[in-house]
């Protein structure tokens, strides 16, 4: 990773992640719809699908904002590493900790 290589990479990136306003609005609309769907679970009984639907929507929304609004999808590998390491470690340690409290059973 010498300086020149990274510089060119960076220029390449800044071209790629130029998220246009129109796309941004579309993504926001999708996010809004998903939120509406989430809220609807409060009023409509989804039965067995309740938990999975909410969980999937939550994860999809999370990743959409991270990937597009925060344009991590188009960023340097190093940034992905930094953020997803933190996220992954958080998920790992807290899942294990909650599991030892028999939270999931």
């Amino acid at each position: 990773m010498n300086a020149t290589a990274t510089d060119t990479h960076e220029q390449h990136d800044s071209h790629a992640h130029g998220l246009s306003d129109a796309t941004a609005i579309k993504i926001a609309l999708i996010l809004g719809t998903m939120t509406a769907l989430e809220v609807s679970t409060y009023f409509v009984d989804f039965g067995a699908f309740f938990m999975p639907v909410l969980m999937v929507l939550m994860v999809v929304k999370f990743l959409t904002v991270v990937s597009y609004f925060m344009h991590l999808k188009f960023e340097h590998q190093m940034f992905k590493f930094l953020f997803y390491t933190g996220l992954g470690l958080a998920l790992f340690v807290y899942f294990v900790a909650l599991a030892t409290f028999k939270f999931f059973s």
């Binding site: 953020f83 933190g86 996220l87 470690l89 958080a90 998920l91 807290y94």
Partner: peptide, 12 residues
Amino acid sequence: WLFLGSECLLFG
């Protein structure tokens, strides 16, 4: 980004 990675563990 590093700070945000760290914040993940805080809110987690």
